[in-house]
Amino acid sequence: MAGQVTGAGRTSELSNLQFALLMALPVLLFLVLVVAYPLGYALWMSFQQIVFFGGYRTNFVGLANYATMLGDDKFWWSIWVTIRFTVESVVLAMAIGLALALLLNRPMRWPGLVRTIVMLPWCVSLYGTGIMFSYLATGQTGFATAIAFFFGADRPVSFVNRQWVIEVLAIGNAWNMAPLVAFFLLANLKTIPTRLYDLAAIDRMSPLETFWNVTLPPLRFTLFVFTCITTVLSMKLFDFIFVLSGGGPGTASAVMTYQIYKISFRDLNLGYGAAQSFVLLFLIVGSTMTLYALWGRREAER
């Protein structure tokens, strides 16, 4: 490794490791503290029963909180809702992000203006997106209702119902995330030499073949990275769902984060909430590792 010195004297410059530690150590300490402390604390809570009424006290209950989960229908339902929401969000965000990137990479008039507009949703906060989509999709104030009446309907059209609320959430989430994906994919597209497209034209490739053989290969790594990122972001998403649907109607959109919030802050069952939050953490880490094993490893070896 670089930086090793044997025998003949040493440099008066800092070695790589010394300089790296000097630059990185304070930050790393900070991060470890603010990450490790809450994690440790949450782990401890997940083994406790925490009681507020009649004086705060904690009882060590071992794995009881984890055992309760197995028979908790709401818990299993929240896992299913989380998976459905995450898969829909990721597929939509990646597809729309790729489409936007391809579109923005074309020569066009006023490219700066179009790019600014397309980047906009990324700048809107998730709670803001939540508020927007709740007004946009509910019957009373919704866009669909306005359009339906414009064409002569006489009843409100609402999508915030048991059947479609997850899709509304996924669309809103994708609306917010797609520009992030598009931005980085576009940066990637800009590195493809124009010559390659000339070559593809000489070989008389169809637009689809050109996309497959010229455009896609350099994007694959970024696509993988952002599939991971959008997966993580979707699974840990809370504020957006909290604002848009509040887990409802009923429990139709009660994703794990919402369930944990409700258990911890409404029911004040902190131990049980902490235990569920560990399950969520493992699901998040597990799904990114699965993605890496199935897809990322191949891309990294390229």
Binding site: A2, G3, Q4, T6, G7, A8, R10, T11
Partner: peptide, 10 residues
């Protein structure tokens, strides 16, 4: 140049 430190020698 001194950009690398030799593992041995002078």
């Amino acid at each position: 140049a001194g950009l690398e430190t030799p593992s041995a020698g002078r």
